[in-house]
């Protein structure tokens, strides 16, 4: 594992926002590595700069100091290697589901005939085969988020940046979809960085959970998540929730997050 070059590397990142009211130090001295094929979850309280990390990796934000490397190369703008999945689906209501999925290939100037086949294939695989020509408002929340996943995967990215992708869904849909997405991404061997404030989501899906401190954000703790299941495959997110280790990880991370209600 240590011999492989990291797919994503953040070196000593500082990030500040400037406004007329003052400056905000969002991230200070943060370093992080993600190996190819690894699923890393970042948890932290709201406002700790965890979403900012994804914007840095995606190349839509530049650090004030430090380096962001993807496959060993410094990031200098959005690249087709990374794809982003946001809190809401942000499907364009004026496009059909198929055309929504094709927005990435369109922008990146890919071969549209091939992209169309791929998009249809993805939508079929995620149970949306019948809804290819539908418009977003005709789909349920879970279906819309699955369409968003197809849109994210349609450009065939190596790295997926997931920014609380299930937080807007109701509880049952969230569990079901997290399970589905976890299985899909592992099967496709993608490198994933998931940002969430939901500890159980992080523990159930990721290989490694990184706990961030309050602002300015730094790495406070790291946990490699393993489940004893006799050398078989990693349990699916849904199964993982029922493992005895799950509660231990949860409690430990909960303690580190220093969540004080009403403090």
């Amino acid at each position: 594992m240590t011999t492989a070059d990291p797919r994503v590397e953040l070196r000593d990142i500082d990030l500040r926002y400037f406004t007329q009211e003052g400056e905000t130090e969002a991230v200070r001295g943060l370093s992080l590595q993600v190996q190819p094929g690894e699923f890393v979850a970042i948890v932290g309280q709201s406002g700790c700069g965890k979403s900012t990390l994804l914007s840095l990796v995606a190349g839509i934000l530049e650090p004030t100091a430090g380096e962001v490397l993807v496959d060993g190369h410094p990031v200098d703008g959005p690249s087709p290697v990374c794809a982003y999945m946001l809190q809401h689906d942000y499907l364009f209501e004026w496009r059909t589901i198929l055309d929504n999925v094709l927005i990435g290939p369109e922008i990146q100037g890919m071969n549209m005939a091939a992209a169309r086949d791929k998009a249809q294939e993805l939508l079929r695989r995620y149970g949306l085969g019948e809804f290819i020509g539908h418009y977003p408002h005709q789909l349920s929340g879970g279906m819309r988020q699955r369409a968003a996943l197809a849109r994210t995967l349609c450009t065939d990215p190596e790295i997926l940046l997931l920014d609380e992708p299930f937080s807007a869904l109701d509880f049952q849909t969230r569990l079901a979809l997290a399970d589905e997405v976890g299985v899909i991404l592992r099967r496709e061997g993608k490198t994933v960085v998931l940002v969430t404030h939901d500890i159980s989501e992080a523990v159930s899906m990721a290989d490694r959970v990184i706990v961030m401190s309050k602002r300015p954000g730094r790495v406070k703790a790291e946990h490699t998540i393993t489940f004893a299941n006799g050398g078989g495959e990693r349990p699916t997110p849904f199964e993982a929730r029922n493992k005895p280790e799950f509660q231990d990880y949860f409690n430990q991370i909960w303690g580190e997050l220093e969540i004080h209600v009403g403090a």
Binding site: I60, C82, Y84, L86
Partner: peptide, 14 residues
């Protein structure tokens, strides 16, 4: 215009 829709297509490199 929805900043998040813009963010979304910016991540595709728009």
């Amino acid at each position: 215009s929805d900043v998040n829709k813009i963010k979304l297509i910016r991540t595709f490199g728009a």
